[in-house]
């Protein structure tokens, strides 16, 4: 694959100012991500340069009151790596997006740092769990949820409460790297439960490749 080239993204958001801001963050981030297309309609992710972009940054509320969950499902079913970027900090919607195969869910209150990390992770098929999503996962009481260890729940809660992996590491006596590993492991558990999606399968394959899980765990 053309991974040696710059990573590319397509932005779907109905507010031009948000599109411009997100594009600026991605282009100037480390590593920089090229924005190949952007628009207020999900069609930009299916046509032209947008169709081959590594990451889709999708606003869930495209001008209407109903979240664009159908659009998200179609994208993930086509194997696209989607980062949902939403106005709403609704835990239920966030969990639903993960269930549909989104690799990350960010609220617009979360800034450039989390968005760039999420986009870079998504471009290589990895999940990223920002603090608000960690809060949603920590509060998840749905019946189909995976079983998390006490330490994993602790990591989720502390990450949600402090927004700082250094701080979480300090509190729990582990390294920030271990905090990230726990978060990735939790996301792999979520990918293994619930309905199937190509992006979830890719996430699992990636986790096995990274040594996060063993084949026997599946």
């Amino acid at each position: 694959m053309a991974q040696e080239a710059r990573l590319s993204a397509v932005i779907v958001d109905d507010h031009p100012a948000v599109r411009a801001g997100v594009a600026q963050w991605l282009v100037t981030g480390v590593p920089p991500i090229e924005v190949v297309a952007s628009g207020g309609d999900v069609r930009v992710a299916w046509t032209g340069d947008g169709a081959t972009a590594d990451v889709v940054v999708l606003d869930l509320h495209l001008g209407g009151p109903t979240p664009a969950l159908g659009e998200l499902r179609r994208l993930t079913e086509a194997g696209r790596q989607v980062v949902v970027y939403s106005m709403r900090a609704d835990s239920a919607i966030a969990l639903q997006c993960l269930e549909l195969g989104a690799l990350s869910y960010l609220t617009k209150a979360e800034g450039a740092e989390h968005l760039i990390e999420a986009a870079v992770a998504a471009a290589s098929g990895r999940a990223y769990t920002p603090p608000a999503l960690a809060g949603a996962l920590a509060g998840d009481r749905s019946t189909g949820r995976p079983t998390l260890s006490a330490r994993e729940t602790e990591v989720l809660v502390e990450w949600f409460q402090s927004e700082s992996k250094d701080f979480v590491g300090q509190r729990l006596g582990i390294s920030p790297r271990t905090v990230s590993t726990h978060l990735e492991h939790i996301r792999v558990k979520y990918a293994m439960s619930g309905r199937e999606a190509p992006t979830k399968a890719a996430l699992l394959a990636r986790a096995i490749q990274d040594g996060l899980v063993q084949l026997d765990d599946l």
Partner: peptide
């Protein structure tokens, strides 16, 4: 400061860092 409210059916946790 970071203020967070975490709620489940049985518990409320409010934290400030």
């Amino acid at each position: 400061a970071r203020v967070s409210v975490l709620r489940t059916d049985e518990e409320v946790r409010i934290a400030v860092v």
